[in-house]
């Protein structure tokens, strides 16, 4: 593990569950790692493989998709579709040598604030163990990470 490594993690969160759970976690004054950046989705089924890959391209060390509990999707099957897409991208990440462990799918309900914080800790710990993404290291070496390159849109703050 790199010295003083602070991971950057993108959490694609469904509006109907994980995003609401993040609010609950906040209302409950629960602490969770600052490594996690939440991106709201209208449904976890909105996630697209290329969005997951782009997060890694922009320097994320880990990415997860958080959707509703299975059987509870507001759009019936969005979370099940997300689960399959995440599995496919995990396999692709293994194939390209970045490692599928850097990506995960979680399920929770909108009332599960403590679980949201727990997932954030769980994923942060996992990514800490895995170490920095080689892409982020390369971007840093070229001075392109963390928004230092104005030419790149959407760099992670």
């Amino acid at each position: 593990m790199a010295e003083g490594f602070e991971p950057k993690i993108v959490a694609f969160s469904c509006y109907y569950c994980a995003y609401a759970a993040a609010d609950v976690a906040g209302s409950m004054r629960l602490e969770y790692p600052a490594a996690v950046r939440v991106v709201e989705l209208p449904c976890s089924g909105k996630i697209d493989p290329v969005l997951l890959l782009r997060a890694f391209e922009e320097g994320a060390d880990g990415v997860y998709v958080a959707g509703c509990l299975e059987g509870d999707c507001h759009f019936q099957r969005g979370n099940l579709r997300a689960k399959k897409r995440v599995a496919r991208v995990k396999a692709l990440l293994d194939e390209i040598g970045l490692g599928g462990d850097r990506l995960e799918m979680f399920n929770l309900s909108g009332s599960m604030g403590p679980r949201f914080a727990e997932i954030a800790r769980e994923m942060t710990e996992r990514v800490r163990r895995l170490g920095p993404s080689p892409i982020r290291e390369r971007l840093s070496a070229r001075g392109e990470a963390a928004g230092t390159n104005p030419g790149r849109e959407g760099d992670l703050p």
Partner: peptide, 21 residues
Amino acid sequence: EKEVEVMASALRLMRGKEGRP
């Protein structure tokens, strides 16, 4: 179109990892 974007991203990641952008 979708597969093309995934392929492009995967190639950039692979080459970025190797330090050959």
